[in-house]
């Protein structure tokens, strides 16, 4: 009795054994792909190319937008005054390499008038921005069955605060 009679596997053609070996490697690669993609989002969270698909996973009940105008009526960049929106449906900063500029304007939060006034006055003082500025805030809130929109307009001077239209 020779060796091949003892072990039938050795009687298999070379191509069949190589085929089985390659199948095993392919299976390991398939399993690796599945396991990595199942675990990586849970372990690492948002780490491209892995993702937890976080877009629109929050539940806002309101938001607002800010427009700022100088005394000549020229619209200014809200980012200059820290009133820009850092939100595109994704949680701000998640999975992004650059930290956004600080802002008072978080999506879903609507801060009160006095906080906005103080904030803008502080920026005006720090950046030597001549006043007065007009701030137009559009506040959109959920309602049944449609959204409700309120527009407020405030005038902010560098030294003193003066209400224009409540």
């Amino acid at each position: 009795m020779n060796r091949s009679e003892k072990n039938p596997e050795l009687e298999l053609p070379v191509s069949a054994r190589r085929n089985g070996h390659r199948k095993l490697i392919e299976l390991l690669a398939i399993a690796a792909f599945v396991v990595v993609n199942l675990l990586a989002p849970i372990v690492f969270g948002e780490l491209y190319p892995f993702t937890v698909s976080p877009m629109f996973s929050d539940q806002p009940s309101q938001y607002c937008t800010y427009q700022i105008f100088d005394s000549a009526g020229q619209e200014l960049d809200p980012e200059q005054f820290g009133l820009h929106l850092v939100y595109d449906g994704n949680p701000p900063g998640l999975g992004m390499g650059i930290v956004p500029k600080p802002t008072l304007h978080a999506f879903g939060d609507v801060v009160d008038e006095s906080t906005v006034r103080q904030h803008v006055q502080q920026v005006m003082k720090q950046s030597n921005v001549p006043g007065p500025l007009t701030i137009k805030r559009t506040h959109v809130a959920g309602g049944e069955p449609r959204l409700k929109t309120t527009v407020d307009e405030w005038t902010v001077a560098p030294s003193k605060v003066e209400a224009k239209t409540p």
Partner: peptide, 15 residues
């Protein structure tokens, strides 16, 4: 990745 590393906002359009 280079885009995501250099931006403050981005969507998941190429995962």
């Amino acid at each position: 990745s280079l885009r995501m590393e250099n931006l403050t906002n981005g969507a998941h359009i190429f995962n």
